[in-house]
Design a protein around this nucleic acid. Sequence first.
DNA 1: GCTTCATGTCAAAAAATCTAACAATTCAGA
DNA 2: TCTGAATTGTTAGATTTTTTGACATGAAGC
Lengths: 294, 294
Amino acid sequence: MKLPPANSLIAYEAAARHSSLTLASRELGVTHAAVSHQIRQLESWLGLELFRREGRGLALTEEGRALGETLTDCLRQIETRCRSLRRAHQPGALTIASLPSIASRWLIPSLPDFQAAHPDIAIRVVYAHARDTLADLDADLAIALKEAKDPGLTSRRLLSRINKPVASPHYLARSGALGSPSEIARATLLHDEDPLHWLNWCRKAGVQPAPSMTGPIFQDFNLLATAVIAGHGVALCPVDVFAREIAQGDLVVLSDISILEDEAYHLVMPSWLPAEARLFADWLIGVMKSAARS
Amino acid sequence: MKLPPANSLIAYEAAARHSSLTLASRELGVTHAAVSHQIRQLESWLGLELFRREGRGLALTEEGRALGETLTDCLRQIETRCRSLRRAHQPGALTIASLPSIASRWLIPSLPDFQAAHPDIAIRVVYAHARDTLADLDADLAIALKEAKDPGLTSRRLLSRINKPVASPHYLARSGALGSPSEIARATLLHDEDPLHWLNWCRKAGVQPAPSMTGPIFQDFNLLATAVIAGHGVALCPVDVFAREIAQGDLVVLSDISILEDEAYHLVMPSWLPAEARLFADWLIGVMKSAARS
DNA sequence: GCTTCATGTCAAAAAATCTAACAATTCAGA
DNA sequence: TCTGAATTGTTAGATTTTTTGACATGAAGC
């Protein structure tokens, strides 16, 4: 294998990603002069221009863009691998990043079972948001909405994200039965961060959204969950996530008209996993499977 | 992005690939001590052992193997990209590595058309063997038997490799018509490097291979081609490669019993191509397509 | 036209990498 | 069991590379 000087590749990758020597130098913790040198070195090794210097600011050439993409891809992959190895060495410590909904409804309640079976593995759970990637989170495993396409990462489907309107029996007792979409649309609608969800549902159900569309908006999904279980109104919830509450009659599904039926919750992890993490991943998938059966 | 020292990764990759510091140091053109240093550095950055030192020789730990694989993959990808960029800069010079059969039957005969349309692009054709990879060949494009699975490489199917028995009209005039498999099996069989091909064909046709199975063996496919056209005997040839000769009656297909019907010739290239190379690739695919139609 | 921001350049300083020589270990064969 | 060849480990010092800091240059915005 005959590669350009490795450090020049690192420097170039950062510079290409930022389209800026200054930002790259800041990221790398060196001066801009150092980055400039490294890039010169790479350019002279390749015998071509990677940037067009345009006074203030850099513009990537076509070749530069191509190289930058490859480098970003590959380095990110290497970074992911190094991270997971590094953590793997902390014996028996495991960090799981999870969307709040799955964390509070599935992960935390089931965790004691896992702990009982593997008391030597220390589990740490951190919140993840929909946009976070595994690398950002500094976690061994992530529960996310999107499958990872990055090579070096593997995804396993956990639960469907299919959303239907649900309410508590208490609320229904007060409001009267909500049989039809138009009755639902006139109820107190509880929103998560994205008010478009109810709007989409109404459109799909073919009903006019009522003025009360401007119901309470809950930043955290778990606040919404608490509110709907407490009987504050009707919420659009992923029914698989609330399978237990629905089975026990604490929540009632009001309609089979659904949104987000094509999305799903996924477990995202590096393709190579240390033993503890693999153990945990298999266990979690098992929990979800048996839950889906029941 | 937070990566270990880049040079230590390069050194480790080579050491892991060879399972040897000495071989790695030779590849990198440094002393073994230097490689040893780099690997120590990487190990201490990661906080784990990558090798178990076993007296003479190294044994990779599980973590070491995992990291080594990722690194080899990624670095190879980067190398391919750098190579193609480097060559891209040689203005208008294009190297095509081709299997001898395609080179002499399709590439060389069609090349004048391309040259006429693009007189400024200098084409260099080199021989490739079935086992060579694009990176080994130092070429912009390769015509090979296998699709490239390496990310960063793209493959396009060119021609089927389906092989059938063919002979020249002269030979048939001398030998009499060869209508049945058993008659073919008793003819003078011309072999390429792999005598198993005729054996497989006989098995498929349900006939006993004759003692004359020990016919002439031609190292280079083009020698075989010359021999069969000159009327020396019957050869198993990829009919698509000889489409022109067959259409003009210089070769006659003796049977529809075929071997290698699932294999194909492919054009293998980096996913990103300089303009000239892309031009050539599109042209070549066009030539093959129009040939297949006629 | 002046200021600001970003990159380019250079020599000197700092840091890293590498080498050379020797030690230690293993393996194969005498 | 001994010996020699092959391989890795270790160290201090030499070498090379990288980085810095200070200043220069050029473009965009006011």
